[in-house]
Write a protein that binds this DNA or RNA. Structure first.
Lengths: 105, 105
DNA sequence: CACACATATCGGAAAATCGCGATATGGCGG
DNA sequence: CCGCCATATCGCGATTTTCCGATATGTGTG
């Protein structure tokens, strides 16, 4: 992860965001409490995959792959607790991406 | 072109930017004078396709399609003068996109 | 260990994208 | 009208992406 991503890095991040459902998921995660209640506090550890899948109305495998794509693009982090994997926005990384878009694009 | 793009609009813009060459072209256009001289002032009407094509080192048809993609994503505007089509960044739209990414993503 | 559950990964068919050469369009000069 | 040039569009094979069902992995519970 370089301080000043070049065109290839930028294009890579954009690729993860080139899917409307993935964009929506990222927006939903701004308000984790809008998801159904869960054992662990969503504000802290994120939202579990099941809830994301239900809201996005995609298959389990697709939901898992979407989140993996967002994670490898550095836009979310995952926290495994027991059998549940929780996903949360990486606000720092997202803010830095937005800044790079503003200044370098 | 809505004031507040939804996830589909955002994804469309991201799609146009999911190609490193298209990102580079957009960055090159920040300094139109870095292109070879042309009859019309590049600062005003933009850079003609031929120069973009040469710098990107892609075929003529690919260059044309790349610019069409950037244009339909609202990132550049085109100005036809005689036989030449000039492309210029739409700074307003780009700035608004960056702002939307900062606030809505 | 057996079982249920949550998630990850695999494998593949369908769809989309990519980048090109060929061709069409349209302006300009003779 | 004709040829030339810049650009746009068409058609296509190649590659990549998409999304799924099936299956594997891993965790908690009895």
């Amino acid at each position: 992860m370089s301080e000043h991503p070049d065109a290839d890095d930028l294009a890579l991040a954009f690729k993860a965001l080139s899917n409307p459902t993935r964009v929506r998921i990222l927006q939903w995660l701004k308000d984790p409490d809008s998801f159904p209640p869960q054992l662990e506090p969503a504000e802290e550890v994120g939202v579990c995959l099941k809830h994301i899948q239900a809201r996005a109305e995609v298959s389990q495998s697709t939901a898992s792959q979407y989140m993996a794509a967002l994670q490898s693009a550095g836009l979310v982090t995952s926290h495994r607790i027991g059998q549940w994997t929780h996903y949360r926005r990486d606000e720092d990384r997202i803010a830095r991406l937005a800044e790079h878009i503003r200044t370098e694009l």
